[in-house]
Design a protein around this nucleic acid. Structure first.
Length: 450
RNA sequence: GUGAUUGUAGCUCAGUUGGUUAGAGCGCUGGUUUGUGGUACCAGAGGUCGCGGGUUCGAGCCCCGUCUAUCACCCCA
């Protein structure tokens, strides 16, 4: 057999124990909160039919989808005249890796519509795959933690999402965040104001870049896209919005028709968050928030760190037509997704990990000789019965080696058990940090470690 | 997908205008005798110089391709 140096695929990662512990800490925190709000778990397969996935995310999304080559003779019946790779790809691939968790949810709901209880509330924490070029905090396989409520138009659920975002982030010790909120209907209203109602998407895409490229570049892009100068003049207020939330609302409602659904809904949502006990939500009305995923139809959110200029740590919004693609119309849903990998980077950067994380071994039993082994194993069993994470060194090698092992593993306590201890019915408990050592009875050992 | 930069021991890096057996620090393994680690000392292992081709008498250094990582764009978690 030829051996080649093994490597990882682009954008794919291994996770060592210390990383898994940290990731689990994030996942546990999110799961705990989601469940507290009454959401139930769902898991779906990594692979879906390609036609389930495509056409929901916009052109960009479809391009970034990982496709799986058909099994067997995938060239059977394919003309060798085909030179267009896209046409060929449609014929030789029929399944793909999921791109997010929302579309699989819609498929699931459409399939189980007669047995599910609506409104259907589920959370889902699983990996998704995108054939993107990796960058910092951006990978080709990454975890999303979705919550969605499907089957009701109630804006209460938008408000709940906002409250949950606060709870999860504050639990993780993250305070320096802002939830940016906008509404597709507001974007439509702005486009209408500029005399191009059908150009809402283009307008959003251009505005989205405002904080990155500045006002002039945005205007330039809009001109290129066909917006007329006198139409643009009507949009100039966007660039000089007041700083306080209240004044912003005033300007926006004045500029847009007072019957705007978008502004009314967002107001209502804010009222709800107050009623749900969120005194000062970290929310800002952000007219430049567009979000590329094309399935959103109502409010959209994105959570960003105020002082870290990275991508968002989560995003979501309301979608009305998604189940329609699976033959189930009139089903509105709203959802949100945390990015575990982004949260990880934030906790890492801000040094917010708790210590200890509470998953690693608390005590190692040193294995001195076969005579005392029986006593050692009894101690080990007792520790585990009392929910203390314990292990025993597998061989009776020199104590020096065993202590070195414990040190490298960063195990905080070593219990030394030899014939002396066995006769006395104790263990010698050594604190690896201070080096102090004292004989302990079984009872005091348990007390010391719990 | 577009445009750049990058890649030498497990890790961080050195390697002079292309010229013999490619180096350091840390880490690793063993030892400094018997049941005590993190310090010190001694010894040792470990590199097809990312991979594949090319130029050259000769390539870690030059050229091309490819993979990876990083950055910007696109888009996004």
């Amino acid at each position: 057999m030829q051996s080649k140096k093994p490597t990882l695929l682009r954008g794919m990662r291994d996770f060592a124990a210390s990383q898994v512990f940290k990731r689990n800490y994030i996942l546990d925190t999110i799961r705990h909160t989601y469940q507290k709000y009454g959401f139930l778990p769902l898991e779906t397969p990594a692979l879906e039919h390609l036609d389930t996935l495509t056409g929901k995310y916009g052109e960009e999304g479809d391009q970034l989808m990982f496709k799986i080559l058909n099994s067997g003779d995938f060239l059977a019946g394919i003309s060798d005249q085909i030179k267009d790779y896209k046409a060929l790809s449609r014929q030789i691939t029929a399944k793909g890796l999921r791109y997010d968790l929302t579309v699989p949810l819609m498929r699931y709901i459409a399939m189980n519509r007669n047995t599910l209880v609506f409104p259907f509330r589920r959370y889902q924490m699983q990996p998704v795959w995108r054939a993107d070029r990796p960058q910092k905090g951006r990978y080709r396989e990454f975890y999303q933690c979705d919550v969605d409520t499907v089957g009701t138009q109630s804006l209460l659920y938008e408000a709940e999402i906002i409250v949950m975002i606060h709870e999860v982030l504050l639990r993780l010790g993250i305070e320096d965040f802002t939830i940016h909120m906008n509404h597709r209907d507001v974007l439509k209203g702005l486009a209408t104001l500029a005399g191009a109602a059908d150009q809402a998407h283009a307008l959003g895409a251009a505005l989205d870049k405002l904080d990155k490229v500045g006002k002039d570049k945005v205007l330039e892009e809009l001109k290129d896209k066909g917006f007329l100068p006198n139409a643009l003049a009507k949009l100039m207020f966007i660039f000089d919005l007041p700083t306080t939330q209240k004044d912003r609302w005033a300007v926006l409602t004045k500029q847009l028709d007072s019957n705007q659904i978008g502004t009314r809904e967002m107001q209502k949502i804010l009222d709800y968050t107050h009623s749900l006990g969120l005194e000062e939500p970290s929310i800002t009305l952000d007219l430049t928030l567009a979000r590329g995923l094309s399935y959103y139809t109502g409010t959209v959110f994105e959570v960003k760190m105020k002082h870290l200029n990275w991508g968002s740590i989560g995003g979501g919004g309301r979608y009305d037509g998604l189940t329609g693609a699976f033959g189930q119309t009139g089903m509105s849903g709203v959802g949100f997704s945390f990015g575990v990998d982004r949260l990880y980077e934030v906790l890492e950067e801000l040094n917010l990990w708790p210590s200890p994380l509470g998953y690693d071994t608390q005590v190692m039993l040193a294995n001195l000789d076969h005579l005392s082994e029986q006593w050692a194993l009894k101690v080990l069993a007792t520790l585990r019965k009392n929910e203390i994470r314990a292990e025993i060194y597998p061989e009776t090698v020199r104590l020096q080696k065993q202590l070195q092992y414990a040190q490298k593993r960063q195990i905080p306590f070593v219990a030394i058990i030899g014939s002396e201890e066995q006769t006395a019915g104790v263990v010698a408990l050594k604190n690896m940090q201070t080096g102090a050592q004292k004989p302990c009875s079984l009872a005091s050992l348990l007390q010391e470690l719990s």
